[in-house]
Write a protein that binds this DNA or RNA. Structure first.
Length: 274
DNA sequence: CTGAAATTTCCTGCTT
DNA sequence: CAAGCAGGAAATTTCA
């Protein structure tokens, strides 16, 4: 009984992710979500803010680094600006993750015009809805930022508390994550980026951490895509959400359907995270 | 290989 | 009736 009506799902997601928003400034060359229109995807200098953000998510994902470990606001810029950042700028903006990002963007600047054909997301097995060619490094090489990569005293500039957190112990940025991001982090990241969240999930009470799923199945599909599990459903996703109650990553909100609330163990969702 | 963590699956029973 | 919500149990997938 496979729901092979990918056309339905596709149109669903395509609709959901279409760029209905315009940026407060700049021309913006955003394209629909994963579909074709990625005219300049391989040329960082032409990326829109949206694309820069996408790239960031990709790299973080590949290295299994929690998106909250670096202040994303530091990368609220378009591709042109991004490309003009120096190695030092990356260190300042992303701490220990800086070298990784720098390496990635450098690679992309080089292979500026190689092939880029991601038009058929629904045909690609595990495209992981990423608009990027291949941000990874030569297989095997995880590009481990050996301590020497980051000057011991680098980043003298007041780094945000988030950076410090990821710096705290050597360069240990990741923990025990089964395959990248956790569900609650995935949800949080969608919530934290209105630009790419056209009605999937919405804050009910931003300061209290209360939110509601508007398109439960669409979110489930997206989650499934991230986990390379095409049979994910809200039914199953919600079971995982309920397990979070015990761990206090989520708090119970009864009465209202599709409503959840971040608990004391959920990190990085507050506007002024302390 | 062993084990634990975090889901993923499936299911029965209730509530909206 | 169709979604959600609750959890228990068991199976999987990953990673250390």
């Amino acid at each position: 009984m496979s729901i092979t009506s990918s056309s339905t799902l596709d149109s669903q997601l395509t609709t959901v992710w279409s760029p209905t928003h315009s940026y407060p400034d700049g021309p913006l060359v955003m394209s629909g979500y994963p579909s074709r229109t990625w005219q300049h995807e391989s040329q960082p200098q032409f990326w829109s803010k949206f694309q820069v953000w996408e790239w960031l998510q990709q790299v973080m994902d590949i290295h299994q680094i929690d998106a909250s470990s670096i202040p994303l606001q530091n990368f609220d810029m378009d591709g042109h600006q991004l490309c003009s950042l120096s190695y030092q700028d990356f260190l300042r903006a992303a701490g220990s993750v800086g070298p990784i990002l720098f390496h990635s963007i450098t690679e992309l600047k080089w292979s500026g015009q190689c092939h880029v054909d991601i038009g058929q997301l629904e045909l690609k097995p595990a495209a992981d809805f990423s608009p990027f060619p291949d941000v990874s490094y030569p297989a095997g090489e995880i590009y481990e930022p050996s301590v020497n990569t980051l000057a011991p005293d680098a980043t003298p500039v007041s780094s945000s508390p988030d950076i410090k957190r990821s710096f705290s112990r050597g360069h240990q940025v990741k923990k025990h994550n089964p395959r990248g991001t956790h569900l609650w982090e995935f949800i949080r990241d969608i919530l934290l980026n209105p630009e790419r969240n056209p009605g999937l999930i919405k804050w009910e009470d931003r300061t209290e951490g209360v939110f509601r799923f508007l398109k439960s199945e669409a979110v489930a599909q997206l989650w499934g895509k991230k986990k390379n599990n095409s049979s994910m459903t809200y039914e199953k996703l919600s079971r995982a959400m309920r397990y979070y109650y015990k761990r206090e990553i989520l708090e119970r909100v009864d009465g209202r359907r599709l409503v959840y609330k971040f608990g004391r163990n959920a990190r990085g969702w507050r506007e002024t995270e302390k």
